[in-house]
Amino acid sequence: MNYFLKNRKFRWRREETLEQMYVLGVQSIPIIVVSLAFIGLMMILELAFHMRLVLKHDSLVPAFSAVLMVRELGPVITCLLLTSRIGAGIAAEIGSMKVTEQLDALKLLSIDPFDYLVIPRWIGSVFAALSLTMISIAVALGGGALLAAQKLGTSSGEYFNTVFFFVKFPDVLRCLIKAFVFGTIIPFIASYQGFSCELGSAAVGEAATQAVVRASLSIIIADFLLTYLFYAI
């Protein structure tokens, strides 16, 4: 361990990091924003239906949908979509770098593949997870306000009043912690799959598939554990 630390000269890779923030974060905006907007709308309709049935009125729909959005769906759905978009890409990229001996070439230049490949993707992915979660929650709530005004007759003033009454700062903080954890899971699992890729192009496909499967599963389990930790005790 001492040896490991002593011989490590970490090098901050600004260019690669900025590139990954762009590729993993900015380029994922459209798919995630559109998906989350529709999920926000669907939630308003569903909750309105159930609340009318059980409670006979729908004044709490904005509050419930916002709470569910911030606590669960915002970070989880965002990061699951992010997994399928970037998890496969990271695994396939690193896997094919291994197959075409680019990883050997890096090593020959004394470049640590972890510093060079994993750290920039980690930062890019955490950046993407945090910012996209925030953006998509905002979009979902905005869409919800419009739909609530249309279908439930709730003015957007009322809507956001109830939302801010029920969604507390700790909820937002926990939401960000979740996004951070999920944003970390994706690049580490995907890079691992890439680095342990067998030789051959079928193996690259397999690494990509495994990256998405394992990262998605890990995110779902991590979400349960975090929710349990945050809210169940």
Binding site: V99, T100, E101, Q102, D104, A105, L108, L109, S110, I111
Partner: peptide, 27 residues
């Protein structure tokens, strides 16, 4: 010591020139 690779090992996201510049800047 230098080596060339059977499956090229060229950095495929870098141009020909960047592939040559990269080792010089790194090492």
């Amino acid at each position: 010591v230098a080596m060339t690779f059977q499956r090229s090992g060229l950095f495929d996201s870098k141009t020909v020139l960047e592939n040559l510049i990269f080792p010089l800047q790194e090492l």
